[in-house]
Each structure stands twice: as structure tokens, then as C-alpha cells.
Amino acid sequence: MDKSVFLYVRGGDYSAMLFDQNFNAQEIYEDMIRNGESSRTIDGEDYMDIDIVEFEKVDTRFMKWIKNNLCGYDQLKGSDIFEVKPVFIKKK
């Protein structure tokens, strides 16, 4: 089954914007998966809560439309989703 996977980032006023500027979403996601995490908090200079969220396959055009038409800059700078490529862990 195809699925869409996102990191949902939220925190202070500029948390999502700073996450996008300072971190690689795919690398954070893969590290979280390796560590068995579904949530993570980054509590440094900038506070961020990060959750992995999964859905059945979501059309990329639809996601862009949602962000462009239903979300404003003020909302997206503080909380946003970042699409990542699903990683599957092989059981030993």
C-alpha cells in the first residue's frame, strides 16, 4: 500500500520556518525511525515538537493547494508539515 509520510513540526512562532532552514526533514525522519520514535522534541534555542504522521497516498498537488489556499504565512511559520520518503525497517 502506498502511503504519504510527513513530519508535523510545531512550537514557537517561527518553529516550522526554522526547522526548514536548519534541518533536513528526511534525515530527522530516518533518525527517528532508527530510534523507534514517533515523536521528538528539540529543546534548544528554538523549541520544536516533531511527530511522524502517515496517511494513505496523498496527491502532492492537493497538498500544495491546501497550503496555498487554506493556510496563511503566520500559521505556516509556526507549524507545518514536511513530506518525507517512507522508510521501512527490516525485522531481524
Rank of each mutant, 00 (worst) to 15 (best):
L76M: 15
D2C: 04
G11S: 00
D31A: 14
D43F: 14
F82T: 04
S79E: 15
N22F: 01
K85V: 08
N68I: 02
G36R: 09
M48W: 02
M1C: 09
G44W: 12
A16T: 04
G44I: 06
L76Y: 13
K57H: 09
K85T: 12
R10K: 11
L76G: 07
K64G: 13
S39H: 14
D74H: 11
E37D: 07
Y14N: 08
I89W: 09
K67H: 10
I89T: 11
V87E: 14
M17Y: 03
S15F: 02
R40A: 12
I52L: 07
I66H: 05
E45S: 11
I50G: 08
E54F: 01
F6V: 12
S4Q: 00
F88D: 11
K77E: 05
F88M: 11
F55N: 08
K3N: 04
Q75E: 13
F55D: 00
K90D: 07
D20R: 12
K90C: 03
E83V: 04
K3M: 02
T60V: 10
S38P: 11
N22L: 08
D43G: 12
K92D: 07
I50Q: 06
N35R: 15
G36N: 04
W65Y: 07
Q26V: 05
S15N: 07
R40K: 15
K3P: 00
M17I: 04
Y73P: 11
I50D: 02
D13I: 09
T41R: 11
V5H: 01
D51A: 14
